[in-house]
Design a binder for these strands. Structure first.
Length: 477
RNA sequence: GCUCCUAUCGUCUAGUCCGGUCUAGGACGCCGCCCUUUCACGGCGGAAACUCGGGUUCGAAUCCCGAUGGGAGCACCA
């Protein structure tokens, strides 16, 4: 681990929804970068939008970040007002005094101004510019309002917003995975930075927080690329040094469109509820847009930390491939310890509580290799708890007739506690002829684990009962 | 519409910075075979890609330009 000094990164979600898989991946890349370089990973809650923010979402974000193992060294504590770390509150709603100070500074230095344009006016202007084939931006109507007039209108309680005086300059910055990127600030117009002294907007709040929290690298989604020049302009106006920037390619849906709830599960919670293991999700997310130097596909979290290199991150968006996630998850399930698996499986199949632990472990052993998700366990093992109804004709192997099958099952029943005897019998008579009906009798299914595996789980009396039932079905069939 | 980013198998990607070792490697998925009472697991094998057009060069997946495709952004959201 190469220890670079003062590497501080952050994940800054807004609590307007459950932890999104895209946010989780951004968090992971930040976390990996911090861990690989001996830096600090900070969580900051961007809840300046009071309308849309909800503490329930904040809770979900923190809980699932923890579940994934992406623990922050600094960030908000569980309760409002609680913080871990030395850089003030890590919730934007609790940092209003700080924003106000800088908004006033900008206003005093004539780098920002009050704007009284109505939303309707703004929308009309926007449409007009679009029609002309121009990039829509604020006209600057209120930019040079006389100080007296501004005071008057403020006093009269007119609704307003605070805008930043954007220069016409071209600005370019270095992105650690994209190289130099340039924008024309003249195309952006005077952006709104606050609704009021006590109501900052995103672009302003980010700049102040990243500065005050001494963030060294801003690693975020590519959707923020066009915000970067705006934020740099604000930094310059405030005299802040800028952080390094890294814009990650976005996760795209299977059809390469923007990831949406319509096509895929978008929240970590949903994946968790389906029984994806955190290790699998981490491995999968890390490999969306990044790859180690060698051909490894399965990398533990430690391996990821060891090998992670931000320079190897892809530039183009990565389509979400659920099949690969399923495969990875199956690999991790296979590697898991049965007793550990039992703990997680209980929430998917509560009946596991009602059987002896030894039996539960045997159920897991027989089914583990068939699971893609933990949620699959229920369907796959239902017959072990309760034999479902099935068609008696399923009992006959290929073109064996029922009379023969009845005979086989009867003999098996007599041989019963002795598995070795049954095996020898099957070898003599033909495995398909004997084992297929036995397995169907025990499972009631065309596909299942083998009969001897099932017999490991079932009580002898239950085995006999099921065989008897099968014989009855054949006799009546 | 305008701006920015981007481009290797269906998908995730190695290779691209430092042109030749690339008749382009791995993984998922797909197909076939083996193992096998079934399903799954596992093993083996196969099909499958350098977006296109110019240039530079003895030589380009790799460098340059353009076109095209894809993505993102253009809020009193973040």
């Amino acid at each position: 681990m190469t220890a670079k000094k003062n590497i501080r990164v952050r994940i800054a979600p807004s609590p307007t929804g459950n932890l999104h898989i895209g946010t989780a991946r951004t968090a992971l890349f930040n976390w990996l970068y911090a861990k690989h370089n001996g830096g600090v990973f900070v969580l900051r809650i961007e809840d300046t939008d009071l309308e849309r923010s909800d503490v329930a979402f904040e809770k979900d974000i923190m809980e699932n970040l923890r579940w994934l193992g992406l623990i922050w060294e600094e960030g908000p504590g569980a309760e409002a007002g609680e913080n871990i770390g030395d850089y003030g509150s890590y919730r934007q709603s609790e940092r209003l005094a700080s924003y106000e100070k800088y908004i006033r500074q900008l206003l005093d230095e004539n780098k920002a101004y009050y704007c009284f344009c109505t939303k309707e006016q703004l929308e009309d202007e926007r449409q007009a510019m679009l029609v002309q084939g121009l990039a829509p931006k604020y006209s600057g109507r209120c930019r040079s309002l006389p100080l007296e007039e501004t005071k008057q209108r403020l006093l009269s309680g007119e609704s307003h917003v605070i805008r930043f005086k954007m220069s016409e300059a071209k600005i370019s910055f270095k992105d650690l995975i994209r190289g130099s990127v340039s924008f024309d600030l003249g195309l952006m117009g005077d952006i709104a930075i606050a609704k009021d002294l006590k109501a900052p907007l995103y672009n302003l709040a980010v700049v102040i927080d990243d500065y005050e929290m001494k963030i060294s690298h801003v690693i975020r989604g590519e959707d923020h690329l066009a915000n970067t020049p705006k934020q740099i302009a604000i930094q310059n106006a405030l005299g802040f040094p800028g952080p390094h920037y890294v814009h990650l390619p976005l996760i795209l849906d299977k059809d390469r469109s923007k990831m949406s709830k319509r096509h895929s599960a978008t929240s970590i919670r949903e994946y968790r509820d389906q029984g994806y293991l955190p290790e699998a999700l981490i491995n999968f997310m890390a490999f969306l847009g990044w790859h180690p130097q060698d051909d490894k596909e399965i990398l533990s979290i430690d391996g990821l930390v060891e090998e992670f290199d931000i320079a190897r991150v892809q530039k183009a968006g990565a389509a979400f491939n659920i099949d690969k996630l399923d495969w990875l998850n199956a690999q991790y399930i296979k590697q898991s310890d049965d007793a550990e698996l039992l703990k997680s499986l209980i929430s998917f199949e509560p009946r596991l509580n009602d059987v002896p632990e030894k039996t539960a472990l045997k159920m897991i052993a027989s089914t583990k290799d068939r699971l893609k998700k933990l949620a699959d366990f229920t369907d796959l093992t239902d017959f072990l708890f309760e034999l479902g109804n099935y068609d008696g004709v399923l009992l006959n192997w290929k073109d064996t007739d029922s009379a023969k099958t009845i005979n086989y099952l009867t003999i098996v029943d007599k041989l019963l506690p002795d598995v070795e005897e049954i095996k020898q019998f099957a070898d003599k008579e033909g495995r398909g002829e004997v084992l297929w009906p036995l397995r169907v009798a025990l499972s009631g299914k065309s596909a299942s684990p083998g009969p001897f595996e099932i017999m490991e789980v079932l009580e002898e009396a239950e085995v006999r009962r099921r065989i008897g039932l099968a014989i009855k079905k054949l006799e009546n069939g």
